[in-house]
Design a protein around this nucleic acid. Structure first.
Lengths: 127, 127
DNA sequence: CACTCTAGCAACACATGAAGTTACATGAGA
DNA sequence: TCTCATGTAACTTCATGTGTTGCTAGAGTG
């Protein structure tokens, strides 16, 4: 599948697709080929890869929209708050990764097929 | 304490302080007075208010930097991914609130004083 | 009554970061 | 050699949170 086709399906731009897929390629989850007949191919077992793997392959983008204003501070009040905050966010992030680590692509694949079967009417694929 | 003094201590702007404190006032955690000698006063028991209360009084700002691109979609793949994602984020947010709900302002207050005692040299307050 | 000091608030400006776009280079078939 | 694909850098756009200005209203002071 080409970046162009993926971009159309995802309602985005081929370059954005390449940027994202680049991370997945570095981890061996997909493979890309240039030139005629090129594009992206899957190169992993769906039951061996989790959302956590994907998240990390995508360079673990920032998870929280909140956080400490600064790590280094002179202010002892800020220090106390930062300490409490950091500790909570670290715990919560760990739980997040654990959850994502439980969800395999195979599970999503199965869920998709269930939804497809449940849908009435003609079964047109996403775009 | 005036918004102006708080803003100096927090390295920000009086208007920003008022915006934030407004949320706390609505929940009765602080009280404000206009005019000469006015400003902000605490009006709650520190051991009765948690970070969760503060977070919610501040209108529960967006917690995650990631999330579904859109809630409504035609695409069954996106639907499956959204479902998995939403479920994880909801669980994780619940844990976040639970943690924040355990941390009272009194605890932060105590932590601050411990840091103050532990600090060598003269004890100058934050600004 | 005039003056000053304070919060309240709306409207605007700025900063940051994510997402999208353009342009060009590189490699692989036809 | 032409076309089709990825790779990548640089730039633009957009969304969101933060900061700023300007004004109103209320409360004490002289």
């Amino acid at each position: 599948m080409t970046s162009e086709a993926l971009a159309r399906a995802l309602n985005t731009n081929p370059v954005v697709v390449r940027r994202l897929m680049g991370g997945l390629r570095e981890h061996g989850y997909v493979h890309s080929e240039k030139g005629h007949g090129g594009g992206w191919t899957l190169s992993c077992q769906l039951d061996q890869v989790t959302l956590r793997d994907i998240y990390e392959a995508l360079d673990a983008p920032r998870l929280f929209a909140i956080g400490n204003r600064s790590e280094e501070t002179e202010c002892l009040v800020e220090e106390a708050v930062n300490h409490a905050m950091s500790s909570v966010l670290a715990d919560v992030k760990a739980q997040f990764l654990a959850c994502f680590g439980q969800i395999t692509l195979a599970a999503l694949h199965a869920d998709f097929h269930q939804r497809l079967a449940a849908r009435h009417g003609p079964t047109t694929l996403c775009k």
